[in-house]
């Protein structure tokens, strides 16, 4: 059996709130296998997004250990984490999080530039074409619809061919048809490039498209179940 690509061992997250410390995640232990698609579901405030942030090194665990591709994320500096994401991870957010001062093409090219790819813009153009936005390359985020912005975000996340794709409710801000299209693209990209996908979602039917679904409740794993 191969080593898991992502491994959480008693991962904890406690944040300081106005009324004192709040336990967001209470000791999560979990392995994600290479190439697996994992759905994280649960009610609002259950800690799904926080768990995803810990997996991406976007948030620092206050306890426990998280390893990705054999690297201990909890021991890395902020910059080391940034470099690790650059080389191995792609993240898609519910609110797209495109850089408003950059065009669609520039947004997609940014991670490739960061990785020092000389053909960053050519590859970015291909990725944009792959999500059907070749004609919108020079548009700024404010000039695009939500669905289009999320497609740009998807292209940006998949452009560097990451080992791990983390998606935080990528259809949460979109209507049904747009959300469906985004999901198709997300799974299509994942299938084409063979990345491991961790998907946070509210929608059970979307989660059912994953190999495995994990439910969270009050910052802890409720139960784990494998999808069909």
């Amino acid at each position: 059996m191969t080593d898991p690509i992502l491994s959480l061992n008693d991962a904890r997250l406690t944040l300081d709130g106005n009324a004192g410390p709040v336990d967001i995640l209470r000791g999560i232990t979990l392995d994600v296998e290479k190439g697996e698609t994992l759905g994280l579901i649960g009610p609002s405030g259950s800690g799904k997004s926080s768990l995803l942030m810990l997996m991406g090194g976007l948030e620092r665990a206050t306890g426990g250990q998280i390893t990705a591709l054999g690297h201990d994320l909890t021991a890395m500096s902020e910059d080391a984490l940034a470099r690790f994401r650059r080389d191995h991870m792609g993240v898609v957010f519910q609110s797209f999080h495109l850089i408003p001062t950059m065009t669609a093409l520039e947004n997609v090219a940014t991670p490739l530039e960061l990785a020092g790819k000389p053909d960053a813009f050519e590859r970015a153009a291909e990725e944009l074409a792959a999500v059907g936005l070749a004609g919108r390359a020079d548009h700024y985020p404010a000039q695009m619809s939500g669905g289009e912005q999320q497609r740009v975000a998807l292209a940006r996340a998949s452009a560097p061919r990451p080992d791990i794709l983390l998606a935080d409710e990528p259809t949460g801000n979109l209507d049904g048809p747009n959300g469906q299209a985004i999901m198709d693209m997300l799974f299509g990209l994942r299938d084409r490039h063979g990345a491991t996908l961790v998907l946070v979602t509210h929608a059970p039917d979307l989660a059912q498209r994953c190999d495995r679904v994990i439910r969270l409740r009050d910052g802890a794993l409720d139960r784990a179940e494998a999808a069909a």
């Binding site: 991406g56 976007l58 902020e78 910059d79 940034a82 470099r83 690790f84 994401r85 650059r86 080389d87 993240v91 999080h97 495109l98 850089i99 001062t101 940014t110 991670p111 960061l114 990785a115 940006r156």
Partner: peptide, 13 residues
């Protein structure tokens, strides 16, 4: 905001 997104994409400080 921009710095947060860039960090997510792998930019160092």
């Amino acid at each position: 905001y921009e710095a947060a997104v860039l960090k997510t994409l792998g930019a160092s400080r």
